[in-house]
Design a protein around this nucleic acid. Structure first.
Lengths: 262, 262
DNA sequence: AATGATTCTTTATGCCGTAAAGTATCGACT
DNA sequence: AGTCGATACTTTACGGCATAAAGAATCATT
């Protein structure tokens, strides 16, 4: 399920996202046993464990309540996901040192994001199209923007670059994250999954390598990165570093000013 | 819903994906009123209209059958999605001219993918981590790989580049696709959605632009691309072109050989 | 005419988000 | 002290989903 953020009442959503310490007056009725924060935390915990396909019932259960109890604090599942999304983003730094120039800073930003997505893979399933518009999401992009503004490039050009870096990191992270998730769900390790599939594939289509010679060529030029990590993880890390390097080379070219081909 | 490809019996899945013209002998029982192809077509049609959240009931209904009738031909919804995924990919060219060098070819590939994702946004929700392993998906990546191999770069380096280009195009396409989908579902146009949200946001957090000055800076350096297109579409196209240019500049640097910073 | 394979429908199970209604607990006011 | 209304939470119920299980109908074969 890909979740489109902010389907509900916009005011209610944004108020929840930006709510400060709401000094509540004394009110009638039973004391609240829960809080928005507690629910968001529980939601994150459940999502970290079981992926985005968590249920309101599961979140409630973790708090010793029914699913419906959550609706006292949160308008619905979509809004809860928005809150979870923005809350996790608070884990990320909101600023990076520019002492050694923009490139190490961007690299650090990218690696932080990479690890963040590894910790909370379900975040990758929240739609990027309509930003959740929470304070921490803003802070994360602001951090990247601040680094890139220091290159001196104009905003118009930087928007494309911010997008490219963001898409790249997300995409690369998604590849490992979903692989882990799929393996986790079925209990299959990546290796086994690949082994079973490629065996059947070669059996059914023995000409495979002749039909797709370039893929075969790409796949076979390898050297181990970290033999401790499983095969797929290795691959992903290597591709992440290599891709990021090329991407930043492109940015460097733009900064140098010796670029602009159609 | 993000769909993890190939959950079922691997052999069954791959046989369906690669099945040739299966010359069926004469068999007892009623003549099949449907076919895998017909079901896949119907599935694609429904998904194009209503997004990935289509139901087996809807696909069956379009064919004048119940949902359960589909299970005679296809093991389950996941496998159907795999088949739909690979089938749509057949729309894409399997080869690009290298007459003018690799760069125009890659650019063309990227634009074809961009438009393809625009036609079938639900494809963006099929997980990339575990490739579906169908013939047409292979062909699409093979086409990109063939172009990039012509740069003379080693396979090890090319894997990262293939990934980067793929992630970038997917990410950029996803941004518009999901925006369109979200707008379509709620009936809200993008403009209205933004207008409502940013008004509330500024009301609740009047200091917004001071808190995130770099974002404000990036957002305000604009010039119109195509006044016919809606705001968000404009933005997306501009960012796509700009980002792709920077990315390919990076590749060009690597090809020139004057690169390799850590 | 009987058998068994095949297509398709019906019915049922167990999930899901959440609407509606009911119960219990409290502060504030008469 | 007694009542009222707001609040927290549960129970029940609804309509959706994928799909398992069982049954009905149709055909080639024996």
């Amino acid at each position: 399920m890909v979740v489109y953020a902010g389907q509900g009442d916009p005011r209610r959503s944004i108020e929840l996202l930006w709510r400060g310490s709401v000094a509540e007056g004394v009110r009638p009725g039973p004391k609240p046993g829960l809080s928005v924060d507690a629910i968001v935390d529980a939601g994150i915990a459940v999502a970290d464990e079981h992926g985005m396909a968590f249920s309101m019932r599961a979140v409630g259960e973790r708090l010793g309540r029914t699913a419906m109890a959550l609706y006292t604090y949160v308008p619905g599942k979509n809004e809860l996901i928005d809150l979870m999304y923005d809350r996790t983003m608070a884990e990320l730094p909101s600023s990076y040192s520019l002492e050694d120039g923009w490139r190490p800073a961007v690299t650090q930003w990218a690696h932080d994001m990479w690890e963040f997505y590894g910790r909370h893979p379900w975040v990758l399933q929240v739609s990027q199209a309509r930003p959740v518009l929470g304070p921490h999401e803003f802070a994360v992009i602001e951090a990247l923007a601040r680094i890139l503004v220091s290159t001196g490039l104009p905003g118009r050009q930087l928007r494309g670059i911010v997008g490219a870096i963001n898409y790249f990191v997300r995409g690369a992270a998604q590849t490992v994250a979903e692989a882990r998730a799929a393996g986790g769900e079925t209990g299959e390790a990546d290796e086994e999954w690949w082994y079973a599939r490629s065996a059947v594939l070669l059996e059914i289509e023995p000409e495979l390598e002749k039909k797709f010679p370039m893929l075969h060529l790409l796949e076979n030029d390898r050297e181990p990165v970290d033999p401790e990590l499983p095969y797929l993880e290795n691959d992903a890390v290597e591709n992440f570093r290599g891709g990021l390097r090329v991407l930043l080379d492109g940015v460097e070219g733009a900064v140098g000013g010796a670029v602009a081909k159609p």
